[in-house]
Design a protein around this nucleic acid. Structure first.
Lengths: 152, 152
DNA sequence: AAAAGATAAATCGCGCACAATACAATTGCA
DNA sequence: TGCAATTGTATTGTGCGCGATTTATCTTTT
């Protein structure tokens, strides 16, 4: 039988890079869901908290930008963190459009528990540092390409 | 100054593999959003249609399983595809618990437009086949590790 | 100094994702 | 045969994510 050129129509989901990333993201979500259960945080909430722990107070816009999220996503997320008593909002006095997000004592205290989470994740990833760094670069390059393409 | 051991607390978001995957998934979503606009499909809807195009009729459960999604996600998604007239549901006669999903003529016809989408995505990914395959394997291994860890 | 434009955050509507639950059909087993 | 456990799908509630719009504040222009 004649071998015909493979058209993109023949590519199954499992050969698609996008689907691999889709599943990887699902997998991270599931692992984090378990690991974060004792902290009472979701995965995006945890990312936000890590940002605040390492960078200190940030405005809503800075948080949006660093997480790559829209204000329509971040605003309600921060509202929930506020309700949990982990952060506080305060309008900036020199520019009243901006709203700064501060960690409360309780929010700062939660960082102690995050070490265990990170260990748990590192173990779940189960690749050594060297290889992990390579993965990181590879995936970042992919992201950069896609972002580039989306912007034209 | 003394160099101290790097604790996981010091790792910024940008050094975290999970965040890289998070952003890659965001990026794919944005590229697909643009590419799929002419088809009137979302990214998960497109994945579902590709599944049906290549595998033929499947039950709700089979679709859930292959996409790695819950019935609480898939059921409303299929309801929307049904409303668009792309698929039809039919209870299986030999086991009335099952619901088979069929492509309509319109649904089958839509495949013609999918080729352009795939080309567009391939171009956005911007890595050659060889390297893409390596990425695929790398990411799949990561996913396997995570899934493994989540299951114990 | 007033009008026009730009920017920051919040709000709304829609769709995805999952846990928990409900319910009906089927299977297994005593 | 009869009834309990299992299986397949749907429903509900909560949270994430984005586009579009709104409101308030700040900046620029004139």
């Amino acid at each position: 039988m004649k071998t015909r050129l493979k058209s993109t129509a023949d590519i199954g989901l499992d050969q698609m890079l996008c689907f691999a990333v889709y599943k990887a993201e699902q997998a991270f979500n599931r692992v984090y869901r378990q690991a974060l259960e004792p902290l009472g945080l979701t995965y995006p909430q945890f990312l936000t908290m890590r940002l605040l722990w390492s960078a200190g107070n940030l405005s809503v816009g800075e948080i949006s930008e660093r997480l790559g999220l829209d204000s329509g996503t971040v605003t309600p997320l921060l509202k929930r963190l506020t309700l949990m008593g982990l952060v506080k909002k305060a309008r900036r006095t020199d520019d009243e459009r901006r709203v700064d997000i501060f960690l409360t004592d309780e929010g700062r205290a939660l960082e102690a528990k995050s070490e265990a989470v990170m260990q748990c994740i590192a173990q779940a990833i189960a690749v050594d540092g060297q290889e992990g760094d390579e993965m990181l670069m590879t995936i970042n390059r992919l992201t950069a390409n896609l972002t580039d393409a989306a912007e034209r």
